[in-house]
């Protein structure tokens, strides 16, 4: 029985991950610029204001998904570099607490990335965002991020410490995350009013995103311990 409660573990792991990010500034100095470059490259590839305005929600979430792979990889590289995950296990830390801590830290970083990408799309792709659309966009993005963070944390935990994890992680995460991409893109489409959609069409997607987030967050907290407990 560990003397540290699960909540304390969650708080400690989350604070540690965010502190590492705050000191290394990899998110702001490398990943955010990479995501913005993707937005620019999409504009070059599609070449047209009308197409860009129509496809902006999908492009934002694709950029988000690909950039998130780098954040997730990094989140576990710092754990295995000095055997930190093993040390936590040996110290008797609650692995479910470790999962929730990493899950929450990842959410914070992904939300920052999303905010930058959405503002970037508004500026570069000429999107007109109303207040009612903004509420839908924020709610759906947070739900989608919770689900994406859960799936990424489970599979990154699995792939951590093995050779070839860089290529294995996207292969495992991206097919599973496809409901997040579909739901978040359609909700953002309604929020932006792309393709003549209205805001009310976006709310049904929140159900899908929430169920996904709940299933994989709780599934992940159960599976995380056995996955790395070897």
């Amino acid at each position: 029985m560990s003397s540290v409660s699960r909540l304390q573990t969650v708080r400690a792991v989350c604070a540690k991950d965010l502190r590492i990010e705050q000191r290394s500034k990899v998110l702001t100095s490398q990943i955010v610029p990479f995501a913005l470059v993707m937005l620019v490259l999409f504009a070059f590839a599609l070449d047209g204001d009308v197409i860009l305005e129509r496809t902006a929600p999908g492009l934002v979430w694709l950029a988000m998904l690909f950039s998130s792979m780098i954040i997730v990889q990094r989140s576990f590289v710092v754990e295995i570099a000095d055997g930190a995950l093993d040390a936590l296990r040996v110290a008797g830390a609650d692995m479910s607490g470790v999962f929730w801590g990493k899950w929450f830290a990842l959410i914070v970083q992904l939300v920052v990335l999303e905010a930058v990408l959405i503002v970037g799309a508004i500026v570069m792709y000429g999107i007109d965002l109303q207040i009612s659309g903004l509420v839908l966009l924020v709610t759906s993005s947070i739900s989608a991020t919770c689900g994406l963070s859960a799936v990424s944390t489970i599979y990154a935990g699995l792939a951590s410490g093995v050779r070839g994890r860089e290529s294995l992680l996207p292969l495992l995460v991206l097919p599973v995350a496809s409901p997040v991409l579909i739901g978040a893109t359609r909700a953002a489409e309604a929020a932006f009013g792309a393709g003549g959609t209205v805001v009310s069409e976006g709310w049904p997607w929140l159900g899908l995103l929430s169920v996904f987030a709940v299933v994989f967050s709780f599934g992940g907290s159960l599976a995380f311990g056995p996955l790395i407990d070897d």
């Binding site: 489970i154 097919p175 409901p179 579909i182 899908l208 169920v211 996904f212 994989f216 599976a223």
Partner: peptide, 22 residues
Amino acid sequence: RSAIVGLLAVLEVPLVHWSVKL
């Protein structure tokens, strides 16, 4: 590891089908 991934894949099927159908 593979048992857990095999079971997670079962969770994935209805969610993927639901999302694509919607």
